[in-house]
Design a protein around this nucleic acid. Structure first.
Lengths: 126, 126
DNA sequence: ATCATAGGTAACCACCTGGTTACCTTTTGC
DNA sequence: GCAAAAGGTAACCAGGTGGTTACCTATGAT
């Protein structure tokens, strides 16, 4: 289970937030939640396998601690995607534009493209 | 579908990377991949519903463009979790430490805790 | 010694997900 | 006008996910 998949569940994200200030016991982590303790246990196992938490066994208690290093791939992807197109990639973009141009060669004189419609799909509550 | 869930799939992450330099057509996005075009279509719909991409219809082509703004919640969570414990939260940490101390009152004199074992679970290839 | 507490595991279940093939519509090229 | 290309949708299927209850072990408190 990679960190991305582990972060996909809102419960797990919230568990991580709970551990942010410091290690937490399973009972404490389960306390406020609507779901059962075994469910929390499962989520913690997922987080552990993703490397996002480490466990410290203290007697009968297990203290789960956030392991920030496993967030690195996520941080990296986000900055990679947020970053403006690097100069070195401008060639590729240029090529793409030229290829599209070739596809619709002779077509619509200016790029104002009357048929072009940009749509942002909004969660249609299906 | 929230952006976190959308990013959980490696194919979708790669699709986003493909769109990073600029908008891409569905055929182009499907080209290199092992999966069928309808499968790509489905992934694109998921990305669209998460707000991570927008579509520009150009005749029979649909150009999918990365929408960076939808990445904001992800970026925020990561920095929230990576950030060191803010001074204002130190009280909570303190309280937690004190509570644990109360729990094992009279117990183990120093904190060197012989029974304490920190374990980092590594993907056991189940 | 005994009882409560912490917490993991197993078995089960409903539902979602990601993939497929088949098919359909619309636009474009000739 | 007609064939090809772009791409969405439907129906279907296997497998994963998240939840539950029941149960078990181990540690700590009295």
């Amino acid at each position: 289970m990679d960190p991305f998949a582990a972060l996909a569940d809102p419960v797990r994200r919230d568990l991580l937030r709970s551990m942010h200030p410091g290690p937490r016991r399973v009972v404490d982590l389960a306390e406020g939640r609507a779901i059962s303790r075994p469910a929390v246990s499962k989520h913690l196992r997922v987080l552990a396998r993703a490397g996002l938490v480490s466990v410290e066994e203290r007697g009968r208690e297990r203290h789960y601690r956030l392991d920030r290093t496993a967030l690195e791939p996520v941080r990296q992807l986000v900055s990679e995607l947020i970053a403006p197109v690097p100069p070195s990639a401008l060639d590729a973009l240029e090529l793409e534009v030229r290829r599209v141009g070739r596809d619709r060669r002779a077509g619509l004189g200016d790029g104002t493209s009357a048929t072009s419609t940009t749509t942002t799909i909004t969660e249609d509550t299906a």
